[in-house]
């Protein structure tokens, strides 16, 4: 260990430089020794210094230790211990700073990482930590995608069953009651009318449920038609005015991606009509060679805090599951803008 590094170490300890400041300068690089060697070197150097002092100085220790000698020895020992502690602290400080950062780290924010620079030990710990984070995020996205797919499949199955079984049986009831009523059965006409009306009401109800469960328009008539349909639906059944502008030139998207875009549009429209007290909502679907972007902008009261309801969480998870990105920002003219951007590259 050269004199410069030694002095540097001591200086660092006293100035308590953050480890990130050890950049890739040539001289500083040389002190990136393994932790173990550093500790050994520091201890060795301190002991060597103590012994050198003992040898060079005229001090001796009598057979019968005098109080003065005892005092000198105690001071010497204290000096050695303190020097050692200070030097070791300098070496270990980057690690404890790293640990503090890890404790404060927000695992929930995707893409956030610890800096991997500076002190070699701290950098390599940070590197492994980041690798674990990447793996966790990947697994979480896969888990979410699986859960969402399972949920959609289950919904589709229930919808299919309702439509095919309950729906058709009710249709048969309607048709049969009509036949029965056509036969003019005067004494039970009222009862039959009741049967007919409640069969009709149930059929309407089944239709409503099936529609909520399975985006049939999406599957049969495609994304653009389906988005137009929900825009129109919200326009009619809620007091807000929903305008839409949807590009017809879309790149080929996977069925999964189309479903994600559709569900995000559904939730964003629901939120805008439920929470925003908006007058107008604009839905846009744009495509460029790299990506497809859905944006839903309202002119309402804006979002006070980034809400953490199920709805917004679900939108984020869905976006992540198909490699997209969801942003919720204040709209340019007040209100809120929700935008979902999906890179076309994720569609292969």
């Amino acid at each position: 260990m050269g004199a410069i590094t030694h002095l540097q170490l001591i200086a660092d300890v006293f100035m308590d430089r953050p480890f990130a400041m050890y950049d890739c300068g040539d001289v500083k690089q040389s002190m990136n020794l393994p932790l173990y060697s550093k500790v050994c070197l520091i201890n060795g150097a301190v002991f060597a210094l103590g012994i050198t002092v003992l040898v060079v100085s005229p001090a001796t220790v009598s057979q019968q230790v005098t109080p003065r000698e005892l005092a000198v020895l105690t001071c010497g020992l204290a000096l050695i211990v303190v020097t050692n502690a200070l030097l070791l602290h300098g070496v270990l400080a980057p690690l404890s700073r790293l640990i503090q950062r890890m404790d404060r780290f927000n695992i929930g924010a995707p893409g956030e990482r610890l800096p991997e620079r500076g002190d070699r030990v701290a950098a390599s710990v940070a590197k492994s930590f980041n690798a674990v984070l990447t793996r966790l995020e990947l697994e979480r996205a896969e888990g979410n995608a699986r859960a969402l797919a399972a949920q959609e499949n289950e919904r589709r199955r229930i919808a299919q069953e309702l439509h095919d079984e309950v729906g058709q049986s009710l249709t048969v009831v309607l048709l049969s009651t009509k036949r029965a009523l056509d036969m003019r059965p005067d004494d039970i006409e009222n009862e039959l009318t009741l049967v007919r009306d409640s069969a009709r009401a149930s059929l309407d109800e089944v239709r409503r449920i099936v529609r909520g469960l399975r985006p049939g328009v999406l599957e049969e008539l495609g994304l653009v038609t389906a988005l137009g349909a929900i825009a129109q639906e919200f326009d009619m059944k809620s007091p807000v005015n929903v305008r839409h502008q949807l590009t017809a030139r879309l790149p080929t998207l996977t069925a999964n991606t189309e479903l994600v875009i559709f569900r995000v549009a559904q939730e964003a429209l629901t939120n805008a009509s439920r929470h925003a007290t908006a007058k107008t909502v604009d839905m846009r679907l744009l495509a460029d060679p790299e990506s497809v972007t859905l944006s839903i902008t309202d002119d309402g009261r804006g979002m006070s805090t980034e809400g953490n309801g199920e709805g917004i969480r679900g939108m984020r998870e869905r976006a992540l599951a198909v490699g997209g990105e969801l942003r919720i920002v204040p709209g340019t003219g007040g209100g809120t803008e929700v935008s979902l951007r999906i890179p076309v590259a994720s569609q292969q």
Binding site: H163, R207, V210, G216, V217, E220, L221, T225, G228, A229
Partner: peptide
């Protein structure tokens, strides 16, 4: 049809 979406009708 069971569904009253205009889109189905026009389709």
């Amino acid at each position: 049809s069971m569904f009253d979406n205009e889109q189905y009708f026009f389709e």
